[in-house]
Design a protein around this nucleic acid. Structure first.
Lengths: 342, 342
DNA sequence: TTGTAGGCGTTATCAC
DNA sequence: GTGATAACGCCTACAA
């Protein structure tokens, strides 16, 4: 139980080593301008004194914080059931760790307060880069960052809505086609979709892709928008099943809604998948472990987080980033989907 | 699309307002030493120029970062299924937001690298406070912070293992008793528990509490330790059910293991809860939505996160924190538990 | 009430 | 190769 140690600074090291503070700085940063002997001595002294760079001083001096920012906007209840954000954080932080970067998280309860946080980061250099998710159509954050190219930003959204900003896209297009084609191959003629909020850009992208592909294949297609919640999923499923000619396959924009639909179907004693195929966009432990297990489109969200961090680090490093599209989505075939049993 | 604005500093404000920089500082921080007229002018100018305090400079000057630190240690796969960490983060960040604090997250892939991060925070003041979770018996982090009282820390663990450091405890003791008593009331004579890793301090606390209470009530009790994973849960369940006199009620230390046990029981076509009661320690959407739904001990993890943030903020503010114990746990009675049907 | 000066710890630019 | 010195932006004695 030693005493609270006073912080040891570069000038302490300089004094003990008997050299100037600039010599110490050079030695510590492995830069030329210092002899090998001096460097060795400095390193030894720094180590014995337990010197660590002071991040605030470094930030002030070189205007970098060695951290990237993420704003959490969903309310706390949604964050608890959705694993997406946690996976993203896990991927981000694990990649950042390799460079000694940290992830700075801020919670914002409204769009306005999120904008405040972002403006603050831009104005003060509170972070070296920012990751933006859940981009909406006409999202003010896009305009904000278009106006401030000095702060690296990466959007997780389709490049068509990124306003020219760097974006890491999912190939929602092909994924939608993949799912529609799969239903078609199973022989389904009437398929439906319970989508996420209409304001979200990826919902919009998916909407278009589904309409396109179903038209192409001459399938009957209906789509209802909901809010990713269990209740929302139920309500939409109820409406769809009440149609005169109900769909025989329903695709849900998240696992939660798919699961609640599954519950409902079981309560109605429907045969899954004999009477109805249920498919989730976004795989999770939930889909895997449910009985019957739920067919799902799987994306590597953790990997996406890693790639995002990598891209941001590169941009901070001065490299220009070209928007890319992930094509790793695949359907995990499980028990909730199959051909109709007439 | 304006030009990248140069950062506006306090001296810019001073120049435009025609006063000294210290006057600006006083005015901006609402401190005495400046006339009302000057203050008004300064505030107006600062606002029109869009001045924001530079966090690095402020940190350097007053040795505070307005952020608290959290190290993520589980591997990314576990973080994806467990909602505990996400709930904690949601609670923490939402409470911190009220004071304009941010949450600094670091990922550490080993205990050694976690210690490095913590030592770094201590040595450089990279954060104003630290939250420690998943405390183990003889955890080196406890010793580290005992040696460094200068950095506020809060442990989420039983105060008996906190080494005198501030701790926010769950009342594991009463929770364990609650669960055992419940099983007893249902008429179960042989109960078992599939616990988490033995090294974790809260596992240890629970182990003792269970042994105590089951002895008290003269119940047969067996306990196996596992790793919170689906596979681990299965293996332990299998072993328990293979005993000559298998338990008729099993309590699992997390929802994941309880769920995998449920799957297994269903595959064996066991009657749940007629032949076996399954209970989870830690509620989640999983427990709620499963069929049959799973009886679970529910804790308010988001609230715990909030309380942690509040406590840390108070400590940073100089207040002394007395360790407290949460007593909000309650059993959510669902379909997976009930009396034996002989 | 106001302005000046020095410090926080680091990096970078100069002379030497 | 080395060591002063200024700069980063803010805060706070202290002096005017």
């Amino acid at each position: 139980m030693s005493l609270p140690k006073p912080k040891v600074t570069i000038s302490d090291v300089a004094r003990v080593a008997g050299v100037s503070s600039s010599a110490v700085s050079y030695a510590l940063n492995d830069k030329p301008g210092v002899s090998a002997a001096t460097r060795d001595k400095v390193l030894k002294v720094a180590d014995s004194l337990g010197w660590r760079p002071n991040s605030a001083a470094k930030s002030l001096s070189d205007a970098s914080t060695r951290s990237i920012g993420l704003v959490l906007t969903y309310d706390t209840a949604v964050l608890s059931v959705e694993t997406y954000t946690m996976e993203l954080i896990a991927g981000l932080s694990s990649e950042l760790e390799k460079e000694g970067y940290s992830l700075t998280i801020r919670y914002a309860s409204s769009q306005k307060s999120e904008m405040d946080v972002l403006r603050d980061w831009i104005a003060t250099g509170g972070v070296d880069g920012v990751l933006l998710t859940n981009i909406e159509l006409g999202d003010p954050r896009v305009d904000l960052f278009c106006d401030h190219p000095e702060l690296p930003v990466l959007l997780l959204c389709d490049s068509s809505v990124a306003g020219g900003l760097p974006a890491l896209s999912d190939d929602e297009q092909s994924s939608a086609h993949l799912l529609v084609d799969y239903c078609h191959e199973l022989g389904h003629q009437r398929i439906a979709r319970v989508a996420g909020p209409e304001a979200l850009s990826h919902t919009f992208i998916r909407d278009n892709a589904f309409m396109e592909e179903t038209a192409e294949l001459n399938l009957q297609y209906s789509c209802l928008h909901s809010d990713y919640s269990p209740d929302g999923g139920r309500r939409c499923t109820d409406r769809l099943l009440s149609l005169p000619n109900p769909p025989t396959a329903i695709i849900y924009d998240n696992d939660i809604m798919a699961l609640s639909a599954m519950r409902m179907a079981q309560e109605l004693e429907m045969d899954i998948p004999g009477e109805l195929s249920i498919i989730a966009w976004d795989d999770s432990f939930l889909c895997q472990v449910n009985m019957p297990s739920i067919t799902a489109l799987s994306r590597d969200v953790v990997g996406r987080g890693r790639a995002s961090a990598r891209a941001l680090l590169d941009m901070i490093d001065g490299q220009t980033f070209e928007s890319t599209t992930d094509v790793t989505s695949e359907i995990i075939f499980r028990d909730s989907s199959g051909p109709l049993i007439a």
